[in-house]
């Protein structure tokens, strides 16, 4: 009997914990959004965060996109050549990259890079009292630390994904042309005849949302970290894991919202 009660108590505690965390995150997100809108603004901090999230993520995101486009062309060739549908490869590559793989893969890569860095930096600032110190120097930490990162995430991710789209399509094109012997002109024409504006735009909208998620999870986990080096490590891990899972889940929801009208 006791064992059963214990089990129920444990499940209950875990559920309460999880609900508490969701509530905390919701309040944090609300405060963060409010802080983005309300002055004072810190252009210097926004600039720094943009470099961090955007510029320094360029190599990783570019390589990821390039290889993804390449492998996509190669794989779809294997499949489509079995029923003589090679001409569809161009469309498959460009649609997969712009609608799905560009934003999702860039999101995952950036969360591993920039999201983790945010959690580690804010976490260290938390455990060394730097965040408290900000408050004592007439500076609201949510405005000074969190808002600029959220803004940078929302701005930088669509730009990164736009570049990733181009490179992904180029990767597919290079493989199709140089490795699979497609006519480069026909391939490009095939690519763009079936592409609609909302394929690209929907991908960029996703990117902006993912950028917000990455920065939010990075800041949230860093902000509430405690307990020295170990706590900062744990915050970094959960920033990346939670952002990645949220990106994949929200991707599904957004796809349904954006495409099933």
């Amino acid at each position: 009997m006791n064992a059963v009660l214990n089990l129920i108590a444990h499940i209950g505690a875990a559920v309460l914990n999880a609900l508490g965390l969701v509530g905390e995150l919701a309040i944090f997100a609300g405060t963060g959004i409010f802080a983005m809108i309300r002055p004072p603004y810190y252009p210097r901090m926004i600039g720094r965060a943009l470099m961090e999230v955007g510029y320094f993520s360029l190599p990783v995101v570019s390589l990821t996109a390039l290889f993804t486009g390449m492998v996509l062309a190669l794989q779809s060739y294997t499949g489509f050549s079995r029923f003589n549908a090679e001409s569809a490869i161009a469309s498959v590559v460009i649609l997969s990259v712009t609608r799905e793989l560009g934003p999702v893969l860039a999101g995952l890569m950036v969360s591993g890079r920039a999201g983790a860095a945010m959690a580690a930096e804010l976490g260290t600032m938390r455990v060394t009292d730097q965040i408290d110190a900000l408050s004592t120097l007439s500076t609201e930490p949510m405005q000074y630390l969190v808002a600029p990162r959220l803004i940078a995430g929302i701005i930088a991710m669509p730009l990164l994904v736009a570049i990733a789209d181009i490179l992904g399509v180029m990767g597919g094109f290079l493989v199709a042309w140089l490795k699979l012997g497609f006519n480069p002109h026909t391939y490009l024409v095939n690519s763009f005849t079936n592409l609609r504006t909302d394929d690209v735009v929907s991908g960029l909208i996703k990117a902006a949302v993912f950028g917000f998620i990455i920065a939010l999870m990075g800041c949230f986990n860093g902000y509430r970290s405690k307990g020295g080096a170990q706590g900062v490590g744990a915050a970094t891990t959960s920033a990346v894991v939670s952002a990645s899972i949220l990106i994949l889940a929200v991707d599904y929801i957004l796809t349904q919202l954006l495409f099933t009208k």
Binding site: T128, D129, Q130, D132, A133, T136
Partner: peptide, 11 residues
Amino acid sequence: IGMLFQNGALF
């Protein structure tokens, strides 16, 4: 209020 933190808490 001005505050001196234990470990400095310099940025």
